[in-house]
Simulated assay, not measured.
Amino acid sequence: MDTPSVPDDAPPLAVDIDGTLTNDQRALDPRVIPVLRAWPTPIVIATGKSMPYPVALCEFLGIEQLVIAENGGVVVAGRDTVRIEGDREAANAVAAAYRDAGYGLGWGEADLVNRWRETELAVAREMPLAPLQEIADEYGLVVVDTGYAYHVKSPMVDKGTGLNVVAAELNLNSGDFLAIGDSENDVPTFEVAGRSVAVANADDRALAAADHVTDARFADGFLEAVERFAVP
């Protein structure tokens, strides 16, 4: 798909990274870069990744640092506002208990996936899920399968609560936003946004929750969504 033009009256955007702005190898599709840089209204990067990843993406794109990281556990609304909303102590306790039960987190010794994580725990999907869910439940946390990792997080925060925070900081309503994503962790964003689009590779929960589903997959789906639905 060719890179679409962005309408001058495009609504604020909340967009996931993995599976939405990337190809099937999780590499950022270069065609999304001019679209995001040309977007005329605020863009919120909403992801399960830890804060440095989406902040760096905003930095290199040259857009304002508006970020929902760790599935709502961390919210960045510009250079002056960082809110930590999750339960870091409980997540650390789950990690310790899971290791004590004989399981690793699956990311190797350096564990760059969790190294900068503030409020939750990410476990590789190759690791056993049932014991992880049992331990998480003991500490009052839930497990969300994003298709890329198991995220152990507080049930009190999600991408939807994060979007509410960022929208309020911007003097906007969550309902003003167009949300685009691909996973069950995008469902809360879909529920509070005014319009939601799931790319065709999305999981069943995201497909069911979205207002629209693209024909194309991954970043092609994002570009299709911009072309078809980026109008107020």
Rank of each mutant, 00 (worst) to 15 (best):
M1G: 10
T3H: 06
P4T: 08
S5I: 02
V6L: 10
P7H: 06
D8M: 07
D9W: 08
D9G: 13
P12G: 00
L13S: 13
L13V: 07
D16E: 08
D16I: 11
D18L: 09
T22P: 04
N23R: 03
Q25W: 03
Q25N: 05
L28V: 09
L28M: 15
L28F: 13
R31D: 12
R31N: 11
P34G: 03
L36Q: 13
P40Q: 04
T41R: 14
I43K: 11
V44N: 12
V44I: 09
T47R: 10
G48N: 00
Y53V: 15
F60R: 14
G62W: 10
I63K: 11
E64K: 06
E64F: 05
Q65E: 12
V67G: 08
I68M: 12
I68L: 06
A69W: 12
N71G: 05
N71H: 01
G72H: 08
G73E: 06
V75H: 08
V76A: 06
G78W: 11
E85D: 14
R88V: 08
A90E: 08
N92L: 15
V94G: 00
A97T: 08
Y98S: 05
R99E: 10
D100N: 15
G102R: 04
Y103H: 15
L105Y: 00
D111E: 07
L112E: 13
L112V: 07
L112P: 14
V113H: 07
V113S: 01
V113I: 06
R115Q: 14
W116F: 06
R117A: 04
E118H: 14
E120M: 00
V123C: 03
P128G: 02
A130R: 13
Q133A: 10
E134D: 09
Y139N: 01
L141T: 00
V144P: 14
Y148Q: 10
Y148D: 08
K153Q: 06
S154M: 00
S154C: 02
P155R: 03
V157W: 10
D158R: 06
K159H: 10
T161W: 13
L163I: 03
N164R: 11
V165I: 13
V165H: 07
V166H: 06
V166A: 06
A167Y: 03
A168T: 09
L172C: 07
N173S: 14
S174W: 03
S174G: 14
D176S: 01
F177N: 11
L178F: 08
G181Q: 09
D182M: 12
V187A: 13
P188M: 00
T189Q: 07
A198F: 05
A198S: 05
A198I: 02
A200E: 15
A202G: 05
A202E: 13
D204W: 12
R205W: 11
A206T: 07
L207N: 11
L207F: 11
R217D: 12
F218C: 02
F218K: 04
A219L: 06
G221C: 08
L223W: 11
A225G: 15
V226K: 09
E227H: 14
R228I: 04
P232T: 00
P232D: 02
